[in-house]
Design a protein around this nucleic acid. Structure first.
Lengths: 147, 147
DNA sequence: TTAAAACCTACCATTTTAGTAGTATTATAG
DNA sequence: CTATAATACTACTAAAATGGTAGGTTTTAA
């Protein structure tokens, strides 16, 4: 039950871009340096977000990426569904509906549990936007982190 | 973000035992047959539950397993924490507290998101017991499943 | 003493994860 | 028109996790 680096890096990248000038295209090199992750690996994550309509890109000299939409309209759930695939905790559920592939579903004693879990995960992640991450970060008090 | 077979089989096994006579020891062979999973594989899951205080066992002839506690006192969260390890969606959080191993935590823009996610997952799974699974299963109406 | 059961440990094939590497394409500055 | 800086694409790979199988040991009671 772990979120992979793909999803984690994607969120950090989007939050990074949300903190930049939204009219500029930002080079992956800069994002990778700021976030201290492999630029080459980010290169593989980025097309997922582009195809998903979250980024617009510009190739060539002075090219790069910028957010295609306002960060307040991009939910973390949307980002993670793109990068992680479904957020369902088991394969038997897809889009909240039990999968026809599992012929046990009718007599499955645990299915309602997974449906419920899927729901709370989805609801939570859909309720937090990239802008929320920025706001929370900016408003954090220094005393939050005193040991 | 998937629950592994270990956790899923563990829950099904416990629910199976909860539906049996709680004074009898039930052979793994029978559980494996009813649940249609590998007995050999269940053998590896069972010691985790025994050590975790969920099962009491009886070796030898007519031996087997039975629940060590009332199913209404065993939460699915407890079971999954035993079999899956932590329910935290990222390694940076353990027991709800950020891990000292991650030196980015103080400036991590996504950490609050993961803490929040961890909380909703934990709260939900701690709030459902093995007995709840049985009750839900027994009370399901046939019309729940009409297409 | 035999059979049925749990217990233990090693092994293994497949898939997923988290990247690296190299090349091709695009766009602009000069 | 060419050098350079950037994305785009495709292939590869090492390590870990997943989901088991295999085989032997120990315990218990009929």
């Amino acid at each position: 039950m772990k979120i992979s680096t793909k999803g984690r890096y994607a969120l950090r990248m989007l939050a990074d871009l949300a903190s930049c000038d939204r009219n500029e295209y930002i080079a992956l090199k800069d994002i990778a340096e700021r976030q201290d992750v492999s630029k080459k690996y980010l290169e593989q994550i980025v097309p997922i977000l582009t195809r998903g309509g979250l980024l617009s890109t510009n190739r060539g000299y002075q090219g790069g990426y910028r957010l295609a939409r306002d960060p307040s309209t991009i939910s973390c759930g949307e980002v993670l569904r793109l990068t992680e695939g479904s957020l369902s905790p088991i394969v038997c559920i897809e889009n909240g509906v039990e999968n026809i592939n599992c012929e046990r579903s009718k007599e499955c004693v645990t299915l309602p549990l997974w449906k419920g879990l899927y729901e709370v995960i989805n609801n939570y992640l859909n309720g937090v936007t990239i802008q929320d991450l920025i706001n929370e970060y900016n408003s954090r008090g220094s005393d939050d982190y005193v040991i």
